[in-house]
Simulated scan of single mutants.
Amino acid sequence: MSEAPDVSLLVCTRDRCASLAATLASITRAADAAPEVSIEVILVDNGSADATAAVIAGWQPHFPVHRLRETRPGLARARNHALARASGRIVAMTDDDCLLHADYFAALLAAFAAVPAPAIVGGRILLGDPADLPVTVKLEDHPMTAVAGRFPGGFVMGANLAFTADVPRRVGRFDERFGAGAPFVAAEDTDFLFRAMRCGVGLHYDHRFTVDHHHGRRHRDEETRLLAGYGFGDGALYAKHWRDAWIARALLRDIADLWRDLADPVTTHVGIRAFYAFRLRHKLRGFLFYWRHALRA
């Protein structure tokens, strides 16, 4: 039996052939810069209708690549398909609009060497194009560890996330009702993190392994829809885990934050007035939708 690779990198994609090609090229560069790190890449085409299949077929790097297809839509479903094929000691994920920095793989191993297993570590996410709005980024320049009992939303992000191979055995699969292309829109990564922390898995952030996110959102309405979706997904997650004391504390913090719309308003999201009220409103929408969805099921 061949030795397990150091890293399994999962990339799920749908109808982003141009950005995917750039992502794959960045993976090759990062792998070339770290010949001491053994890797495999697991690519899942989640029902693309553009030239994605040709891009995937044309990518022929020097390391193993598993090319999979999942025709049923849903990022969480595609990630589960990829996860079932992963054999690396560390499982990492990035998005099809992200570019890995050249030192990504060496920095990833260094990050995991610094924390005890089982562990989840999220990496730094920089804005890839200054013309894009400053959303879906993670800019902190120092390591952090999540506090037990705190809701993990936003602490790390699925666009640059990794975990030791034993984590899915403890936590289970991604909940396919959450995430892009699914009924609850978002929060598939947050749900996974929440369940992991409840199982005693350490959650960390390490700025050393970094990706540039070329998300392409440049208009206020795109940002508003994105943040509404994040709130909606978090609200559905609240409903899923409503019995948990962590969720009660998170909801109480959301309510307590409403005063900040007057005392310390968020000004970075220009298209959103009263950000904390906006966020809570969409969380409540998601909370109610979860229960309607559950009753219909």
Rank of each mutant, 00 (worst) to 15 (best):
F151L: 12
G122K: 03
D95N: 15
A4G: 03
V156G: 03
E176L: 02
M144A: 15
C98A: 15
A196H: 02
A245Q: 13
D97N: 14
A186T: 08
D206L: 03
M157W: 10
D234Q: 11
G172S: 10
H62E: 14
A82Y: 00
T136N: 12
L227D: 00
R169G: 15
L252W: 09
A57D: 15
A49T: 14
D191E: 15
G88H: 03
R150E: 15
G271F: 06
M93V: 11
L133Q: 08
I247K: 01
L288R: 13
G154S: 11
C17P: 02
C98E: 07
R177C: 10
R217D: 07
F278M: 06
A245M: 09
P5D: 10
F155I: 07
L68K: 00
C98H: 10
V11Q: 02
A49M: 07
V135Y: 06
I272E: 00
T23G: 09
A22T: 13
A131L: 11
F184G: 00
F63P: 06
D132I: 02
E188Y: 05
R273T: 03
R72I: 14
D129M: 03
A146P: 01
V65H: 08
P5K: 12
L258D: 04
A92G: 04
H293M: 06
L75V: 12
L258E: 05
R89S: 12
E36P: 05
D6M: 11
I125R: 06
V211H: 09
F209E: 05
R170S: 08
E3T: 14
R281M: 08
V156F: 02
D15N: 15
L237T: 04
T94G: 04
A102V: 14
L75W: 03
A30G: 12
H207C: 13
L108C: 07
S26P: 13
L20S: 06
L99P: 05
F209C: 08
A76W: 02
R253D: 15
W246E: 12
C98Y: 05
R292K: 11
G200Y: 09
R79W: 00
D191Y: 03
I90E: 00
P168W: 05
G88M: 07
A110G: 14
F63Q: 11
E3K: 14
A196C: 06
F192V: 10
R72S: 12
L83A: 03
A228P: 02
R225F: 11
F287P: 00
D96I: 09
A236N: 03
R77N: 06
R67P: 04
D50S: 12
